[in-house]
């Protein structure tokens, strides 16, 4: 069969019939499964997005893990431990789902540790106070939910299915974070101040989690067509703002944006300009904690090398014994 080659976004030549059939399946809301034909660019986009997501779950353990040993009560300690453990679990599911696209976890880990792969910019911000644990749960897990709920309908089956499970846990995390903030906001003046400072620190970085503004987002259009994305960055960001502002008001905390106001006409909140230069800097590696976060992962990987090697050698010996 002769087919005219079509260059896709990655410059790959793909047969037009297959491309058309693929798009038709997506338009019919059919799930694409690992053994199905897919354009190379679709595969690559998914690998990039899913591995970034998995890396974010793993690096995301660190800013909160920072407070496990110092959590202020046994209950809070257990909730936080379980939460950070959930994030490791999310990383595991998503790595497995990514592996169905023909990459290995070792490759992906290597890309993270060498700085080749990105992870969410939010985890490069510090959590200097206990209230940051509340703010992270409330805002960061909250923003993650906004991003991830539409991903439960992603056209790629394994990703969509892993997201369904993960979203349930994320909304639990969001509630727990908000609860920490509630207790602090109703507490002593010092506790309330702690909560306000954490909101000040995390508000803008949380908004940046949705990625660049639509006019600057290079991956959006094709991803929308392939239903890897369902909403644009700005749409999701707006949803998040609209959902979160009343929550902050309920806490009696002030969102650090003097331009934030309700717009009767649009039925949405208008907000101030995001500092995109900061976003670019943090993505490029110049955020407050980029080096620390990556170094922590590198250390864990290097210090664990002998353990992984030992486990492998032991397994080989066991296999040999069984064979003998």
């Amino acid at each position: 069969m002769y087919s005219q080659g079509l260059k896709d976004a990655e410059g790959q030549l793909e047969p037009a019939e297959l491309m058309a059939e693929f798009q038709a399946r997506i338009d019919r809301e059919e799930k694409i499964e690992p053994r199905d034909w897919m354009p190379e660019a679709y595969r690559k986009t998914l690998i990039r997005q899913m591995s970034q997501h998995a890396h974010s779950e793993i690096v995301g353990q660190l800013p909160e893990g920072n407070w496990i040993t110092r959590a202020p009560s046994l209950k809070r300690k257990m909730i936080l431990l379980a939460k950070v453990q959930d994030e490791a679990g999310h990383g595991l599911y998503i790595y497995s789902a990514t592996e169905t696209l023909g990459v290995t976890r070792d490759q992906l880990t290597d890309e993270l540790l060498t700085g080749k792969a990105k992870y969410s910019s939010i985890f490069n911000y510090p959590t200097p106070s206990w209230a940051d644990i509340g703010a992270v749960g409330w805002l960061v897990d909250g923003a993650a939910i906004m991003n991830q709920v539409p991903l439960c309908r992603s056209s790629y089956g394994p990703y969509a299915r892993s997201m369904i499970r993960i979203c349930k846990e994320e909304s639990f995390h969001q509630r727990q974070g908000y609860e920490i903030m509630t207790v602090l906001a109703r507490g002593t003046a010092a506790q309330k101040d702690m909560a306000q400072r954490a909101l000040n620190r995390f508000w803008w970085p949380a908004l940046m989690m949705f990625g660049p503004s639509d006019k600057d987002s290079k991956h959006s259009e094709q991803s929308m067509k392939w239903k890897i994305k369902r909403f644009t960055n700005d749409e999701l960001r707006q949803k998040f703002i609209d959902a979160t502002v009343p929550q902050a008001e309920h806490l009696g905390l002030t969102i650090p944006d003097p331009e934030l106001r309700w717009n009767e006409e649009t039925g949405q909140y208008d907000h101030g300009e995001i500092n995109w230069q900061e976003f670019i800097d943090v993505i490029k590696g110049n955020g407050p904690c980029n080096k620390e976060r990556l170094q922590a992962r590198i250390n864990a990987h290097e210090e664990g090398e002998w353990v992984r090697e030992a486990a492998e050698v032991y397994q080989q010996k066991q296999n040999q014994e069984e064979a003998a």
Partner: peptide, 22 residues
């Protein structure tokens, strides 16, 4: 044990150590 959370030799071990800690 909780000090291992986020720093274990494998992700799977991270989860397991955290379980025991919990």
């Amino acid at each position: 044990l909780a000090e291992w959370c986020g720093h274990g030799p494998y992700l799977e071990e991270d989860v397991a150590l955290t379980n025991v800690s919990l």
